[in-house]
Amino acid sequence: MLLDSTLLYTVLILCAVGVIAAALLYVVAQRFRVEEDERIDVVAAKLPGANCGGCGSAGCRNFAEKLVASEDLAGLFCPVGGAATMKDVADYLGRAPVEKAPQTAVVRCGGSCAKRPHTNLYDGAASCAMSAMLYGGQTGCIFGCLGGGDCAAACNFDALSMNALTGLPEVDQTRCTACGACAKACPKLLIELRNKGFRDRRVYVSCRNKDKGGVARKSCAAACIGCGKCVKACAFEAIALADNLAYIDSNKCRLCRKCVAECPTGAIVETGFPALKQTKDG
């Protein structure tokens, strides 16, 4: 009997505690409820959930809050989800979708080990931020890649890796979401987010050396020497020359590739084009 009553009391007390706690929780939940637009949850679910910060917000939920609060979605774009996600979100919120060409990260330095001879040896901690603070780098070019791999470490999507042969980072554009984390990590500002381009075809100046031609050439065989040949060759005024450095505006470039052929140092790079057909002369 004793055993039975103990069991009974225990069950009853636990039930009573449960009921009281439930009532208390209900009251508290009602009393201190946070009023939140339920659309935020829906929008957040539509976002990729990578929390990369590429949109400039602190994570996807924060971005969702901004999207719901925004009148016209101006200046709000998820680089990871791209146009498809943004259209989905805009349709749900009943607003005009934001159009933005898909982008990818592009490394603007062609100074591989072979083209840019070392002038000294760095044996400090392997970090670009650190060596950039200390000095100009292991080569004569103070604008080029330091090879410390800060960009690869910053990438959340495994899209960047250091190529041991060239000493330069390489972007795997199938993985790149253009979140811009690498661009922020590079102390030399070598990584640019460029339009992906028609069929992933791009033409860009793979150099940021602002030295005068002779100095630039001496330190790196692949440097832009600011000769201006590309500017003259371009029929669409897409190339501008400033501080001994050419820059191709990807919005104006029509991918004719005349500049690529003109560049004496090979600083202008083309990607994504099919291999040229062999002519009869070879």
Binding site: A125, S127, A129, M130, M133
Partner: peptide, 12 residues
């Protein structure tokens, strides 16, 4: 450990 190196970056 590269103590001073990192302290310098941190200071910055």
């Amino acid at each position: 450990l590269p103590l001073l190196d990192f302290i310098r970056t941190g200071k910055r």
